[in-house]
């Protein structure tokens, strides 16, 4: 495992922990899109089916379990926790799941490496992860006013994606036969979706002012 991959996994883990910390300590999920969190839970549930069939390493298995448990816990908190759920802004978080889930599934049926259930689910999870942040970005745009933790959460997710791209470049030059078109293209699309947010995040950081997105 190279340094970019490890740093990518760690920022991904940090993003989830920041979110859980916010929900658990402040007992608030204000500004967090439940739609995005449900999509991530679906992403992990469909991608990590190989937990039952392949063993890669203890690290790999543990991280997969952490992402599965944390994503479902976050969804549970927002939906069912008696205090947290009151801070959920249902009227602003209106993105429809199926606008993203259905096209991703159809695309996975057509463009995949192998026409098997496991492979199609894995491909679907990659396509869905690429666009799962959209409800969150729409919510940020609508509410405009972003608290620090929510801003950091999205920033860490973007950092994780950028580091994964560096990881692929590194692996491409150091490992034989390392070519993964589906992973690369969907990963690139996913990272580009953060570009706009990153721009405003860095502006606010540079000028030392609160992050606010333009209407």
């Amino acid at each position: 495992m190279n340094i970019f991959r490890l740093a990518g996994d760690m920022t991904h883990l940090a993003s989830v922990l920041v979110l859980l910390l916010k929900i658990h300590t402040i007992k608030s999920c204000a500004g967090i899109s439940l739609k995005t969190q449900e999509l991530y839970a679906l992403v992990f549930a469909t991608r990590y089916l190989d937990l039952f069939t392949d063993y890669i390493s203890l690290y790999n298995t543990l991280m997969k379990l952490i992402f599965l448990v944390s994503s479902f816990s976050i969804v549970w908190y927002i939906r069912h926790h008696k205090i947290v759920r009151r801070s959920y802004d249902k009227d602003q978080d209106t993105f429809r799941h199926y606008f993203l889930v259905l096209p991703c599934f159809l695309l996975a049926l057509v463009i995949n490496e192998k026409f098997t259930v496991k492979e199609i689910m894995w491909t679907f999870s990659l396509y869905l992860e690429a666009v799962a942040i959209l409800p969150q970005l729409v919510l940020l745009q609508r509410t405009r006013n972003i608290d620090n933790l929510t801003g950091q959460y999205v920033f860490l997710l973007g950092a994780y994606r950028s580091l994964y791209i560096l990881n692929w470049i590194y692996r491409y030059f150091t490992e034989p036969h390392y070519v993964h078109w589906i992973t690369w293209i969907s990963g690139l699309v996913q990272t580009l979706l953060y570009a706009d947010f990153f721009y405003y995040y860095f502006q606010s950081w540079k000028n030392n002012v609160k992050l606010e997105l333009p209407a």
Partner: peptide, 10 residues
């Protein structure tokens, strides 16, 4: 034939 590397990413 190139062997496919295992899917070791998360």
């Amino acid at each position: 034939d190139n062997p496919k590397p295992p899917k070791d990413e998360l």
